Simulated assay, not measured.
Amino acid sequence: MSWGIVLERCTTGRATPVRPLTATSWRVAPSPGRRRTSGTPGSSPPCSANEIARYVGRLLNAGYGRQCLDTALPQFNVPNVQGVMPGQLYTADQQCQHIYGPQSRYCHGGNFGNLDGICTSMFCLVPGNRRRIFCVEYHAAHGTTCANGKWCEEGACVANANAPNIPQGNCPFGDQLTLVNRRRCPQAVAARPALCYNQRVRTICCATCAQNAQANSNANRAACPFGDRVRRCNQQSCHRLLPDGTPYARDCCGTCNFDATQWTCADAPNGVDGAPCRAAVQADQVQGCYNSTLAFSCCASCQEQRTPQGREGCEYGDRDLTPEFCQRLSNSSQPCTQQQRDQCCRTCGAKENDNQGIIQRSSAISTLTLQWPIQLCLWLIAVCNICRLWTCV
């Protein structure tokens, strides 16, 4: 009662009524604010008895005060909450709304701390500030859930058989107030659902991401809970293999209804158009495994042809359309044209690397050739200076 009525020290010489939940510090996201330095919920402040007596005395001397203390209230249909802990009757958001109105809510996560510190550090949002999140620290009500099977008693988070259980990974207080891409969680996730694949976003937007996963009607929801991981997916490309050897459908799991955990790089049992994969790859001389659809259906056969550490666009070596065409290019001293590079990427790449090595060696020899006369001149100058010095002596 003393904490609810008075929080002024004896040294101030006056008593001031305050809200039932006493603000102990403030905090602005993301910079930490002042922390509480004294005072424990449940203990009486210094000289509280004298302060209460003075305060009640002033109420009795005032007309409105005597009316409040002496006149009984009319009968109301007030529910019997005897035996119910206040923290279980009112959520953390509701406790903050009792202080700052319906737009307020409990600030948690990040700079505002986690659930286990709510007993002495329950930050409440101060509405009306559009530029930044401004929260003030209060003590949570007795019985406020602070951990699995624990609630607040006298400012401490203690175990109690009546305290509710919180399943691991649950989201008891909803989304955090931290902005994602300068937006609140519902707006940010609605604009790009794939954000929920990010662990940090899932922590900040735990409620919104959970709602999106639950609303996902995809049959492959377990492996693709938030839909496509990238934008602009199309079903026509679902049976393609990307240049790095991964299936296109992996990042477009929602559009393609694809489960990456069930996919293995193997040849299709029936091959392609009735032909075994090895024969189909050899028959397609123009593209071969560069045909992304063929590479997907004949993944194992194409994997055998993949060039180790091949650059992008040359994963499967030369596209040798005519016999010995690329071989003739390797024996030629002329540089490859763009068309030749597209057709014989491996041969032209090796040739260009050899030429580059020759250029570097020639450059090194030229540098050395130019440097040794200079070094000789400097040496002769030094010798002449020494001879002149001896002559003077």
Rank of each mutant, 00 (worst) to 15 (best):
4 G>L: 12
10 C>E: 15
12 T>W: 09
14 R>Y: 06
15 A>Y: 03
20 P>G: 02
21 L>W: 00
22 T>F: 02
25 S>W: 09
32 P>T: 04
34 R>G: 12
36 R>H: 06
38 S>A: 07
43 S>L: 14
46 P>A: 10
53 A>L: 14
53 A>F: 14
55 Y>H: 14
56 V>W: 00
61 N>S: 13
65 G>K: 01
68 C>W: 11
70 D>M: 12
75 Q>L: 12
75 Q>I: 01
79 P>E: 11
80 N>R: 07
81 V>G: 14
83 G>N: 10
87 G>F: 01
87 G>E: 02
95 Q>W: 06
99 I>T: 03
100 Y>G: 10
105 R>C: 03
106 Y>E: 06
108 H>M: 04
109 G>P: 05
111 N>P: 07
114 N>F: 03
115 L>T: 00
118 I>Y: 14
118 I>C: 15
121 S>D: 07
123 F>W: 01
123 F>T: 02
125 L>K: 06
126 V>M: 00
126 V>R: 01
130 R>L: 15
138 Y>M: 11
143 G>A: 04
144 T>A: 08
147 A>E: 06
149 G>N: 05
150 K>I: 00
151 W>A: 00
152 C>G: 01
156 A>F: 09
158 V>E: 08
159 A>V: 03
160 N>D: 15
162 N>F: 08
165 N>L: 04
167 P>L: 11
167 P>E: 13
168 Q>G: 15
169 G>E: 04
169 G>K: 10
169 G>W: 10
171 C>D: 01
171 C>V: 01
174 G>C: 12
174 G>V: 04
177 L>C: 06
178 T>C: 07
196 C>G: 10
197 Y>V: 03
205 C>Q: 05
208 T>L: 11
211 Q>K: 09
213 A>D: 02
215 A>F: 08
216 N>G: 02
216 N>L: 02
219 A>F: 13
220 N>I: 14
221 R>N: 10
224 C>H: 01
225 P>N: 07
225 P>R: 08
225 P>M: 05
225 P>Q: 09
227 G>T: 03
229 R>A: 06
232 R>G: 11
233 C>Y: 09
233 C>D: 02
235 Q>S: 15
242 L>G: 07
242 L>E: 13
242 L>P: 03
244 D>E: 09
246 T>N: 13
246 T>A: 15
247 P>H: 05
247 P>N: 06
250 R>F: 09
257 N>P: 13
258 F>W: 05
260 A>M: 08
261 T>Y: 00
261 T>R: 00
272 V>K: 06
276 P>R: 12
277 C>V: 09
278 R>W: 14
281 V>S: 13
283 A>I: 11
287 Q>A: 10
287 Q>R: 10
291 N>H: 10
292 S>N: 13
303 Q>S: 14
305 Q>F: 11
307 T>D: 08
309 Q>D: 15
315 E>V: 03
316 Y>L: 09
317 G>K: 07
322 T>D: 12
325 F>P: 04
326 C>L: 12
327 Q>A: 13
335 P>L: 08
343 Q>N: 00
344 C>P: 09
345 C>R: 00
349 G>I: 00
351 K>H: 10
352 E>H: 04
354 D>W: 14
356 Q>V: 09
366 S>D: 14
376 L>A: 11
377 C>Y: 07
385 N>M: 10
385 N>F: 05
